[in-house]
């Protein structure tokens, strides 16, 4: 008991001194679990997050926009890869994590359970969803688990690029024909509240926040991050002539922040529970890709084994003519 207690103490002191925890370091079991859960959820979000935008790749309205979108969705796949690798440093395999996702046991960001209904959604996702992700990820660049923090530094650069590209699409659509402007406003209307929910429950309803803050996994609370996002994004909407769909939204001179209306936490809970508009489709799409890829992965494994056997066997045995 005493030894465990002092290990935990030293662990906390090490973190308090702003050191990074590395895979081989001792860590409390709960810290390990929290990090693995968070990284795998994050990885799953990147991969499931490819789906709503992939929905428009074949319909992108210009060759340039098709290339930008394709590269963006591909980047998200790359983020998934870095994050699965970072999570693997704590001894959990990518297969295991993906299995949990496919069986519906693991979570991913609920935002990807909303549908993409018009082209401006490609703008709204980049601007708002990548934007909200960045707010969280900039903080995670300083998270206490080393491999996670390093993966985030790399990912953040690409996310801010995505955010700019998304905003550009929105700006362009908002300045386009009346139909285009209507698409942009419709996209903002549909994505605004789900984007605010991306920061998670209000602090008062978020019992794990305190421990995560103490361990410096998180450095800001959900509500702090959400407020920063609102403060940054509202003027961007105004600048391009779009209206944020919140009648309570008002600049507060005293606090120096925007006040905003109540979030529909019932909707949030329902989507987390699997009842969002696209939960079933998203999981079904991941399962379909996985199942249809099974024979491909099996063949690749079988071929690699044959290659190894051939390399190990004497040349004359496999290729008589080579002698």
């Amino acid at each position: 008991m005493g030894e465990e207690f002092s290990l935990e103490h030293r662990f906390q002191a090490y973190i308090d001194a702003e050191n990074k925890i590395e895979p081989k370091d001792w860590m409390p079991e709960n810290y390990r679990k929290t990090i693995v859960r968070q990284m795998s959820q994050h990885a799953h979000s990147e991969v499931v997050g490819m789906l709503p935008e992939a929905n428009w790749i074949t319909r992108a309205p210009s060759l340039r926009s098709k290339l930008i979108l394709l590269a963006k969705v591909q980047d998200e796949g790359g983020h998934g890869l870095y994050l699965y690798s970072a999570a693997e440093t704590l001894g959990v395999s990518r297969e295991q994590m993906i299995d949990d996702l496919l069986q519906g046991k693991a979570k991913y960001s609920s935002i990807f359970n909303y549908p993409t209904l018009n082209w401006a959604d490609m703008g709204a996702i980049g601007w708002l969803v990548d934007g909200a992700a960045i707010a969280n990820q900039v903080m995670l660049c300083r998270t206490s688990y080393g491999p996670y923090a390093r993966a985030m530094v790399r990912i953040c650069k690409e996310e801010s690029f995505h955010q700019r590209q998304g905003y550009e699409i929105m700006m362009h659509m908002a300045a386009g024909t009346p139909e285009q402007k209507a698409m942009a406003q419709d996209a903002l209307n549909r994505w605004w509240w789900p984007a605010l929910m991306m920061f998670g429950p209000a602090d008062a309803a978020s019992p794990n926040t305190a421990q995560s803050m103490a361990w410096k996994i998180k450095r800001k609370t959900n509500d702090e991050l959400r407020q920063e996002f609102v403060d940054k994004t509202v003027p961007q909407a105004t600048f391009i002539g779009l209206t944020v769909p919140d009648s309570h939204l008002k600049w507060n001179e005293v606090t120096g922040h925007y006040d905003f209306g109540p979030i529909d936490w019932e909707e949030f809970t329902q989507v987390v529970k699997g009842n969002g508009p696209c939960n079933k489709e998203r999981l079904a799409a991941r399962n379909k890709a996985h199942q249809e890829g099974q024979w491909v992965r099996d063949a690749a494994t079988a071929f690699a084994k044959k290659q190894q056997a051939r390399a190990a066997a004497p040349v004359s045995a496999t290729n008589p003519s080579a002698a």
Binding site: I57, V73, Q74, G77, L81, A285, V296, R297
Partner: peptide
């Protein structure tokens, strides 16, 4: 090829095939 993006048999190959799609459209 671009229709494969997000639906490949394994993440690395999804990314690799998307690279080819990007090159071809370029």
């Amino acid at each position: 090829l671009s229709a494969w993006c997000g639906h490949g048999p394994v993440l690395e190959q999804d990314i690799a095939l998307t690279n080819i799609a990007l090159d071809l459209i370029g």
